[in-house]
Design a protein around this nucleic acid. Structure first.
Lengths: 197, 197
DNA sequence: CCGAACCCTTAACAATTGTTAATGGAGGAA
DNA sequence: TTCCTCCATTAACAATTGTTAAGGGTTCGG
């Protein structure tokens, strides 16, 4: 269905103008997939073969350390998501990619992606800009670890992701902020007390 | 001089094969520059107009918070460096870019960069791959903040950057690791004591 | 409807890091 | 050389976070 690609092309059009022929090719290479909550799309130790565009739902990328799951990133609607490290290098990675909600995804695999680069050279421009944005984004998160205290980091997260506090378990957010659930709970308490004044 | 471009093309050739005509264009657009130690190349609050390739020397990217300098990244020889955020968006940034040693740089400005995209379309592929690598790199550093203790982070840094411990002041490394110089000194002491056993 | 699993919060204590300040060494400038 | 600045280390104390454990609420499946 064309309606599956509305947000997809809305994003791509901001990066590089695509004509109808190019869009048609892309529609044949990306496929629609429904994935239920708590599905692991990529396992650590295996190579990520697919790249996803999220039409609806949430994904998270995480590491495992000592049996514990540590969130590296939470992907929202209308973003591309993958265990990039593994997908780009086509080597086994150390990250897991999992759905946090029932998801509607557009999917392309690595081979199809190479085909896309061949048939739609503009794709190099698009993925360059996406990679640049991702890099800037990663750098911003990194800066928060260097410049901010855990409490400030929580405050910023709350400000720009108010909805996620209700959509996903807190301990996932805590690990994303680099703290324990206990510590995050204390921070939340402190902030509520301070708001009273 | 052609010898100025040896490492430059050595890197680029691994990303996409360039013919002599393309290399010639690049030689005219990149210019050679000698920059003494402790020179600020990009100021926070200003737009970064240039992108650098480091032939020799070290650069560091840093933030300022409460008068303190906090290192975001240390660029080595044969890497591209810039205050990317500002350079890519062509907006004022919040980072400073400074030489840590006397440097030999290849320089291109934003306008020339756009010209390069026009005349050498392959450049989109090259910068896409560079951006992807940078993203993976940033993600790796980020994972170290999520998964490792400050002590483990120091250990990993020491392992992969042994030379930097002698080339640059420790407090710069400490801020890069997200800790204070005092804490880093304690970590170093602990490690020496443990090695005795 | 009930039990089990999951999860947020709270408490108490341990461990680590941050803060402030002092010391002494190294390196650059005049 | 001598002075001065910068810097690494150390100590003492404060603040924060981590750890472990317990209680109670919610959700989901049988």
């Amino acid at each position: 269905m064309t309606s599956d690609f509305i947000h997809f092309f809305q994003l791509l059009d901001t990066l590089s103008e695509l004509n109808e022929a190019e869009k048609k090719i892309m529609k044949t290479l990306f496929s629609f997939r429904y994935v239920p909550k708590k599905t692991i799309l990529t396992q650590a130790g295996e190579t990520a073969h697919e790249l996803y565009f999220i039409n609806k739902g949430l994904l998270r990328l995480y590491y495992r350390k000592d049996g514990e799951e540590i969130t590296a990133y939470i992907f929202r609607e209308h973003l591309f998501a993958s265990s990039y490290d593994s997908f780009l290098k086509q080597e086994p990675g150390i990250q897991y990619l999992e759905t946090l909600e029932d998801c509607q995804l557009l999917v392309i695999n690595y081979r199809q992606m190479q085909e896309l680069y061949q048939t739609v050279p503009k794709m190099h421009i698009i993925t360059r800009k996406i990679a640049e944005q991702r890099f800037i984004n990663a750098q911003q998160i990194l800066s928060s670890f260097l410049l901010d205290s855990p409490e400030e980091r929580y405050a910023k997260f709350e400000q720009s992701n108010k909805d996620l506090l209700h959509r996903i378990p807190h301990h996932i957010i805590a690990s994303y902020l680099g703290i324990t659930p206990v510590s995050m709970s204390r921070i939340r308490k402190r902030r509520i007390e301070q708001q009273r004044k």
